[in-house]
């Protein structure tokens, strides 16, 4: 092969590799999940999440999943990425539509890192129909009554919150079967924490091995951003 031919071959091969890498990166970025942005008003920001027994993504419809509520449209977004401003009081509301699974480490039954180290919990037969009054508690024992569906944890902030499952009898009768859930028995849990003082990304996850069908329950949704784990972006 002549020298010019070799140079051309080399350049073409190099360009092909670069194009392949660029395609992969662009494809990855384009396919990444949407982020729901929460803006503070009056020094607080209200984050609303729900936990579903299934989801509306045709690729893994039977995976348990979190949803994040868009604060403007009130639409439920199938993502686990949200952003909050820095150094702001974050009020979180989690609607628990999924049934219980025992924790592997029951230590996570303890509420940690929230304001007052407590959560406030209330049970609903369906949206707008409470069946008890709100209770404030420091722990929800996932082993004694199988009362915990998932957890919400931001480990690097030492924030660990067990999220209760709905009333078992009601759940067994008419659990929400279409996601995102807008009716059906659910728990409602509220708690607060201060967002970090500097911008960045904080990983959050569930500690219940809730990946049904996966070895030890720790695969699938537990390992996939958009389902049982995500990131909280703290903006400046």
């Amino acid at each position: 092969m002549s020298l010019p031919a070799r140079i051309v071959t080399l350049l073409v091969a190099f360009a092909a590799v670069v194009a392949g890498a660029v395609f992969l990166v662009v494809n990855y970025i384009a396919s990444s999940l949407p982020t729901v942005h929460y803006v503070a008003s009056g020094g607080v920001v209200n984050v609303v999440l729900q936990e579903d027994p299934q989801n509306n993504d045709p690729s893994n419809p039977d995976w348990v999943s979190y949803y994040v509520q868009n604060p403007q449209t009130k639409q439920w977004v199938h993502t686990t990425l949200f952003s909050v401003p820095k150094h702001t009081r974050v009020n979180v509301t989690i609607l628990g539509y999924d049934g219980c699974t025992p924790l592997r480490n029951n230590y996570w039954s303890q509420v940690q890192g929230t304001t007052g180290s407590t959560v406030t919990v209330q049970q609903f037969a369906t949206v707008g129909k409470p069946i008890d009054s709100p209770t404030t508690t420091k722990m929800i024992n996932s082993w004694s009554n199988c009362a915990v569906a998932h957890t919400f944890a931001i480990p690097s902030m030492h924030l660990f919150v067990p999220v209760p499952s709905p009333n078992t009898a009601l759940f067994n009768k008419d659990a929400c079967g279409v996601s995102p859930c807008t009716s059906g028995p659910h728990s409602q849990e509220t708690f607060s924490f201060m967002s970090p003082d500097h911008a960045g990304y904080w990983r959050w996850q569930c500690f219940i091995p809730c990946g049904g069908g996966f070895l030890d329950g720790n695969g699938g949704p537990m390992q996939t951003i958009g389902y049982m784990t995500g990131e909280m972006e703290v903006s400046a």
Binding site: T101, R104, G211, G212, G213, F214, L215, N218
Partner: peptide
């Protein structure tokens, strides 16, 4: 043998 006794 599995911790999570799901539909497996």
């Amino acid at each position: 043998g599995y911790y999570y006794p799901g539909p497996q």
